[in-house]
């Protein structure tokens, strides 16, 4: 299992990059009680038959690792959601793409902490498999609301090579400043036992 909710975002968004997608959109919504993410891609998609098996940890299509018998990404996510009273949905169509929707109840004691959003976004934006990738991060709590948007193409336009450590360092500064602008709307959640 992953330690942070952002680890699930990183893991599942990589699936979209690996599905021969050109466009991937990640939307992260945070409210007083719920933390949700939506990942949509225009990649290869899955048939109904494959879709019915993807949540099984012992199912993999065998393309990435031909001798492997496990596929844990989505299984981890769904197990955690089931354990913590969240919601999950996946829709996919061959040739059209896949949409994954997850929502976590931040007041459930077993829900993992959110984790480091800037570094997660940095790992995704600099992923060698990403093409057109855009991110929308929203927060809407009793303290107010705000958001920021990111487009990988714009960041490459400014920074050039996203493998170079000094470009990545600057990208991290940028991403941290975006997330910092939302801090005033963070709320303390009381756990419901």
């Amino acid at each position: 299992m992953h330690r942070y909710l952002t680890d699930y975002i990183l893991d599942i968004t990589q699936n979209s990059f690996e599905a021969s997608s050109t466009n991937v959109v990640l939307k992260i919504d945070e409210e007083d009680r719920y933390f949700s993410f939506f990942i949509s891609d225009d990649g290869s998609g899955m048939s109904q038959e494959v879709l019915s098996k993807v949540l099984d940890p012992y199912y993999t299509n065998g393309i990435k690792h031909k001798s492997r018998k496990v596929g844990l990404g989505l299984s981890f996510l769904v197990q955690t959601i089931k354990d913590t009273g969240g919601t999950f949905d996946i829709k996919s169509k061959i040739g059209e793409g896949t949409v994954v929707m997850s929502s976590f109840d931040l007041c459930n004691i077993d829900t993992p902490p959110i984790g480091d959003i800037p570094t997660t976004l940095l790992a995704l934006i600099s992923s060698p498999q990403a093409k057109n990738f855009s991110i929308e991060r929203n927060i809407k709590t009793k303290l107010g609301n705000s958001s920021y948007q990111l487009a990988r193409s714009e960041l490459i336009d400014v920074l050039g090579d996203l493998n170079n450590s000094s470009s990545l360092f600057m990208l991290r500064e940028y991403l941290r400043s975006q997330e910092d602008s939302l801090v005033e709307y963070y709320v303390d959640r009381k756990l419901i036992y």
């Binding site: 990435k64 997660t120 790992a123 600099s126 060698p128 170079n164 450590s165 000094s166």
Partner: peptide
């Protein structure tokens, strides 16, 4: 993810700019 984050911090700390940091599966 922590390792990636720390590499950026350490490479910057030592003024190293000619090492690329990439990811694989």
């Amino acid at each position: 993810k922590v390792v990636l984050d720390e590499f950026l911090t350490q490479l910057d700390k030592y003024g190293i700019t000619n090492i690329s940091v990439t990811q694989t599966g």
